[in-house]
Design a protein around this nucleic acid. Sequence first.
DNA 1: CCCGTAGTTCGACAATCATCAAACAGTTCG
DNA 2: CGAACTGTTTGATGATTGTCGAACTACGGG
Lengths: 105, 105
Amino acid sequence: MVHPQVEELSLPKVLAALADPARLATVRMLAQVGESACGQIQHDAGLEVSKSTMSHHVRILREAGITHSRVQGARRLLTLRRDDLDARFPGLLDAVLRPELAETR
Amino acid sequence: MVHPQVEELSLPKVLAALADPARLATVRMLAQVGESACGQIQHDAGLEVSKSTMSHHVRILREAGITHSRVQGARRLLTLRRDDLDARFPGLLDAVLRPELAETR
DNA sequence: CCCGTAGTTCGACAATCATCAAACAGTTCG
DNA sequence: CGAACTGTTTGATGATTGTCGAACTACGGG
């Protein structure tokens, strides 16, 4: 399971990963709840996509370095890599997560 | 020539527009020089793309609401819509323009 | 009036992307 | 064991994207 290191994070890649409504909603949900499983996020955020699509989005986020996945039993628990993102791109995550931007369209 | 209004700016669209190295370099150049023409930017930023490709990128930036274009003779002068972006997405532009992120890869 | 400069528009093309269903794999629990 | 649950992988498909060259439009200077 690929988890890029902090120094490897690419700004265009991170921006591209965030530039999708479903992924933005996922990130927003993670910012709220801290740690959660794919299916749970999908449900809580009201994402109407198939599980394979959700799996795809989660992978994009992970490979961009935005989230971290750990395996716990049958579930994959995701967390935001807040510290790493803040270290590499200060202010970016905060800007994107501002509550008044909640409509992710 | 399409110039979306502030309230119409969409976060995913803005992020998608910024998620391309050539466009990011364009925005960065505009932040430095203030106002400049497409060809000038392309030259100054060392962008090795055809003029039709450059025209395409400029259009994406404009339609995302990131830049403003005005016609002056045969040239199109671009400016960053700093105030509008700051009003709608506070901190986003600052985060993306941080000098230590200069390598736009 | 013609020529050079500055961009746009129009296909075209290859690459990437978001999406899905189906099959698969690992976990948990009865 | 076997069923239910969680998520990944694998094609497949249609849409979008970045790129180009060529043709076109518009302005400015000799």
